[in-house]
Amino acid sequence: MTVDFTRLGVHDLGRSFGRRRALARVSFACEAGEIVGLLGPNGAGKSTLLSILATLLKPTTGHVQYGERTADVAGAALRARLGMLGHDLYLYPELTARENLLFFARLYGLADAEARVAHGLEKAQLAERADDQVAGFSRGMRQRLALERALVHGPRLLLLDEPFTGLDQASAASLVARLRGLRDDGCLVIVATHDLDVVDGLLTRVLYLRQGKLVAEEPGEGGGGALWERYQRVISHS
């Protein structure tokens, strides 16, 4: 059984690690079909927020609602609709590209695992290297494979932490096109990134975080100037 949802609600979210406060009273909501950017300097709380949204970390205060449910109630059924690509790529270097995707497809209990894996390998442009061990791949190839790993089960909510790291221009453009396709298919994408030039024009909404607080929220486009200019303005005035 899976739990589907089209709306994500974050209410008064806070998280502390010992005495250090990583997130404080963050609230926002978003809908399926959006690409939301989490922008902010290092230590702003972006990765912590993504980990909480992925149900890997429990908030100290507040809660997250996936449609009508919370992570505590929905548990494993909810996790079947979440996909995450972290800064580390969550791949086994000793396994081949195909084995990595097959392992995760089977972990998600997908009936058509082989077909999905073949499709994922095509999308990652790794069909010809499918039976090579991941240890021999470049960072860009691993990044593309890791994205397919996160997408193999067709998640509703896709969480990306610095997905453009190590990608050349062509691969970054291909990832941007892939994210647009996912958005059009009704996926809700939340991406934390410092690659402002790459995501300029891609995001439907931008959330600015600083020192664990949500300091501003604005539409992805039409906010006056390029994204990096808006980022500089918001962060320096917050």
């Binding site: 979440l82 995450m84 969550y90």
Partner: peptide
């Protein structure tokens, strides 16, 4: 490679 997070997810 933080695969533990992927397993837990």
């Amino acid at each position: 490679a933080e695969t533990l997070r992927a397993l837990l997810l």
